[in-house]
Design a protein around this nucleic acid. Structure first.
Length: 839
RNA sequence: GGGUGUAUAGCUCAGUUGGGAGAGCAUCUGCCUUACAAGCAGGAGGUCCCAGGUUCAAGUCCUGGUGCGCCCACCA
């Protein structure tokens, strides 16, 4: 195989000889990240390749409004880890990028811009051309941020929800629903966004508790009156009944009579409906079917008239013509007061629907809108998850999903906007809800409704990864539409991750100004550091409280990686690498053994979706074992005849770590991999993900580590410094020579520790260090240690004296406790003996 | 009101099927030991929310309570 490689620097071992001075002591991500991204794209490394099993993901398309935030970074980094892992593991991988036109949000932004530019009276076509240039500008910006993050997306298949192909998909979906009688147009009460002058679906409304006034108003009934309570007095002109509870004795003899609306003096019937609560307000309710969902339902039950009291700009049109809602309310109250009809006032806190986009209160109005009947679509979507055909993690999301689908309501899909898919029927000017098109994303981007190779090969996709906040908007609707259109699931697995919050637990938002710009973070710390931070701290499903200190840890880790590479590269200038196989000593066997278990753990945890655990496993191995112990010990042999083997093991381990880390930290791993140059691959991204290759009997180094730590600890406690010391042991060890060099000590084996030594108890044994020391200090130290050990001894002793424990606990547990007891006992004996000598 | 999640070190969080309490940050002490001060070494710091229960054994399982969070519905 021969690649036409065009590497962005001169590559190979000679690099270090000639340019070593250029390798900076600190890792500087800025200098390499863009370079490698261009290299990957230029060499088409993100296109599907090979004959392996397919693995495909459709990226949740970001809105063309705004810019990428930290949450997007988390979402897309998680996906990239899976994608890069599978690509390295031999799968034929496809990851498709794209954007969502985001109807309301985008239209609003564009209108805002036009208003700022002083443009008025624009036609639909003029508006659309303005919106398209907006899309070009901001869409590119978002996608370039994806590149900055290092996402290995197939850019040759970039999609947009308003592409011509996509329009076909939307038309086909609508046509099918229409022909199956699942779409209908009707006069219904809908949520109306006064900010955007369009209908909204129920899901786009957020309820917030609002403090507002509630007034009692008297309506005349023949020679008496009935007093109703309302928070919206100005809607009285749309009243078509007064309702009371049928059980309410106070009003029993009024039912069937007529009440008169004050001011306009129109008569309306008094009806009985069990919806009305006796103990709320006065127990009498004014019924305004045109402007309240519950009243609308009452109206349907009693065949009441519907009187719309607003024009399209929400100015009154029955009385007080032309006044806005607030002004009208004031005037109505004044007039009621002068008529003597105003009987009470109090403040109440009650939930009010707000437009989830603009934050303004929504109005309920009756209008003609298009709806989709959802119950028939929900059935298969429900079954698919219940049967396990589609998996959802964390699993508790299933319950939320079931509950929504089991209580699903019809979906209002028409929007009075310009930016979107026009309803594909003669004469219709409205557009479809954005989610109507998003629902088709996984298959529309693969070519549906046409039969394409991509659709055939890559659908259903393997997973969808998203925040739980769009489970209804998006995930559930994709599942419904996919079964409906193709009779297949859209993906096999749904992974929900948490929301990124700030350090105080507040949701990141522009208005709070607490959301850092990912580009600033990348500029300062590098994309790898940001990816590290997000994945290292993301326990699947829980929210995460973002802190810049995480990114610092990521950067520090990259720096550690970089300096490990520098150290190794300094020593390998003249070295010709071959995979380590023979002449391995105990330390080599130990580190390769540890590497092997890390590899297993990483594979296992990525497959399970526990990316944080996988990353921590590599982090701990690389920093805590390889750098802190193996490299330090290997320095002892870099001048001996073992040098060659040591370098082989160093390079081998580093190279494997790079590959394990590549899905998480794509840039720095590529940079170092290319420098190492020990495999014939044009990129680490298409090299083979590690599997356990060198099987060997691994070596346990715990005793070695414990003794080293014991000596260090004593040196510190007694200010011994770096002087050579004599260390007494009661057993011989097979790494004595290394231990002596590593700790600057002389090891001797003794039967009893000498009087002039400092006793140190380790987990498995005791050692004694011979040095000058403060006698009193040592006595204090030993006494407090004796206390501690005695307490621990007694705890285990009590346990072992418990007959039921001996009888019922498994043998291996009992044996272990006995072993532990012996250890404590030995330690106590030794400390006691030592104390005797000192005193 | 219905549903659901969470409570472990000063902070943010890990803790697999029950079996000797962990990481990062912060903090204290000593080191520029030639790969790395973005580093190295050594420490200190915990009533695992509360109360019961199951068990030889509970941070882990069960019941109840409390605090915090989220989702759905909604009162004129």
């Amino acid at each position: 195989m021969c690649f036409n490689k065009e590497l962005p620097f001169s590559r190979g071992r000679s690099f270090f000889v000639r340019e070593r001075k250029l390798i900076s002591k600190r890792y500087v991500p800025k200098e390499i990240e863009d370079k490698w991204y261009s290299y990957w794209v230029k060499n088409q490394l993100f296109l599907p390749r090979g004959e392996g099993t397919k693995f495909s993901i459709a990226v949740p398309p970001p809105n063309v409004t705004g810019i990428l935030h930290i949450g997007h970074c988390l979402n897309s980094s998680i996906q990239d880890v899976f994608i890069r892992f599978k690509r390295m593991d031999g799968y034929n991988v496809l990851w498709i990028p794209g954007l969502d036109h985001a109807g309301i949000s985008t239209q609003q932004k564009v209108l805002q811009k036009l208003e700022n530019d002083g443009v008025k009276d624009i036609t639909r076509d003029e508006f659309l051309s303005e919106a398209w240039s907006w899309k070009e500008k901001f869409g590119d910006k978002i996608l370039s941020q994806f590149r900055k993050l290092g996402l290995s997306l197939d850019w040759s298949r970039e999609r947009f929800t308003l592409d011509d192909n996509y329009k076909e998909a939307v038309k086909e979906f609508f046509r099918k629903l229409y022909e199956d009688n699942l779409i209908y147009k009707g006069e219904y009460i809908v949520n109306w966004s006064t900010a955007y002058s369009t209908a909204l679906s129920d899901d786009e409304v957020d309820y917030k508790d609002v403090k507002r006034g509630m007034w009692d108003i008297a309506y005349k009934v023949e020679d008496t009156e009935i007093i109703i309570s309302t928070t919206r007095p100005e809607t009285m002109f749309g009243d078509t009944a007064v309702a009371v509870n049928p059980e309410d004795e106070r009003y029993a003899d009024l039912i069937g009579k007529h009440a008169t609306i004050p001011i306009i003096n129109r008569n309306i019937p008094i009806i009985a409906d069990s919806y009305v609560k006796k103990d709320f307000g006065t127990g009498a309710l004014k019924v305004t079917p045109a402007h309240d969902p519950n009243d609308f339902e009452i109206g349907k039950r009693h065949n009441l008239d519907i009187i719309n009291i607003f024009d399209k700009d929400f100015r009154l049109n029955v009385a007080y013509e032309g006044l806005g809602i607030e002004d009208a309310r004031k005037r109505v109250l004044e007039e009621l007061k002068s008529l003597g009809a105003l009987r009470g006032f109090k403040e109440v806190v009650s939930p009010v629907g707000h437009c989830s986009k603009s934050g303004r209160p929504i109005e309920s109005v009756v209008s003609r809108q298009w709806f989709v009947k959802m119950k028939p679509l929900a059935k298969k979507a429900l079954e698919a998850v219940k049967s396990g055909e589609i998996e959802m993690y964390p699993e508790h999301w299933k319950k939320i999903y079931y509950h929504w689908l089991e209580n699903i309501k019809d979906w209002c899909i028409s929007r009075q906007l310009w930016w979107g898919h026009k309803i594909p029927l003669e004469g219709e000017e409205d557009v479809l809800d954005t989610w109507f098109s998003s629902a088709l994303w996984p298959f529309a981007i693969l070519g549906w409704p046409r039969k394409t190779e991509d659709l055939d090969r890559y659908f259903p996709t393997d997973m969808v990864i998203t925040g739980g906040d769009i489970i209804f908007f998006w995930v559930a609707r994709m599942i419904m539409s996919s079964y409906y259109c193709l009779d297949k699931k859209p993906f096999s697995k749904v992974l929900f991750h948490g929301i990124v919050r700030d350090e105080d637990g507040k949701k990141m938002s522009k208005s709070l100004g607490n959301s850092p710009d990912p580009l600033d973070i990348i500029e300062k710390y590098g994309a790898d550091a940001l990816r590290f931070a997000l994945i290292y701290n993301n326990n699947m499903g829980n929210d995460l409280l973002y802190s810049e200190s995480w990114v610092e840890l990521g950067r520090n880790f990259c720096n550690k990686l970089w300096n490990t590479f520098r150290f190794i590269s300094m020593n390998t200038e003249e070295h010709s690498y071959s995979e380590p196989s023979s002449n391995l000593d105990m330390f080599d066997k130990w580190i390769i053994g540890e590497l092997n278990s890390t590899i297993s753990s990483v594979r296992h945890n990525i497959e399970k979706g526990n990316l944080d655990i996988a990353l921590k496993a590599i982090f701990n191995f690389f920093w805590g074992e390889f750098a802190d112990w193996y490299i330090e010990i290997s320095k002892l042999d870099l001048k001996s005849e073992k040098r060659g083997v040591k370098l082989d093991v160093l390079v081998y381990t580093l190279n494997n770590c790079l590959k394990l880390l590549h899905p998480f930290l794509p840039f720095i791993t590529e940079e170092i991999y290319q420098h190492l140059n020990i495999e014939d691959k044009e990129s680490i991204s298409i090299s083979a993900f590690p599997s356990v290759e060198i099987e060997l009997e691994s070596y346990d180094m715990n005793i070695f580590k414990e003794i080293v730590k014991g000596i260090r600890s004593v040196r510190k406690d007694f200010n011994i410094g770096k002087d050579r010391v004599t260390v007494e042991l009661k057993i011989d060890i097979d790494f004595r020579e290394y231990l002596e060099k590593f700790t600057n000590s002389q090891i001797i084996v003794v039967k009893n520790f000498s009087e002039s030594s400092i006793l140190k108890t380790l987990e498995n044994m005791e050692i004694a260090i011979v040095a000058n020391f403060d006698r009193e200090k040592e006595i204090d130290r030993l006494e407090s240690e004796l206390k501690k050990e005695t307490k621990a001894f007694e705890k285990v002793d009590t346990k072992l004296k418990d007959k039921t424990f001996i009888a019922k606990a498994p043998d291996h547990i009992v044996e272990r406790e006995q072993r532990i007891l012996e250890e404590y006992s030995e330690k106590i004996d030794e400390i006691t003996r030592k104390l005797g000598l000192l005193k």
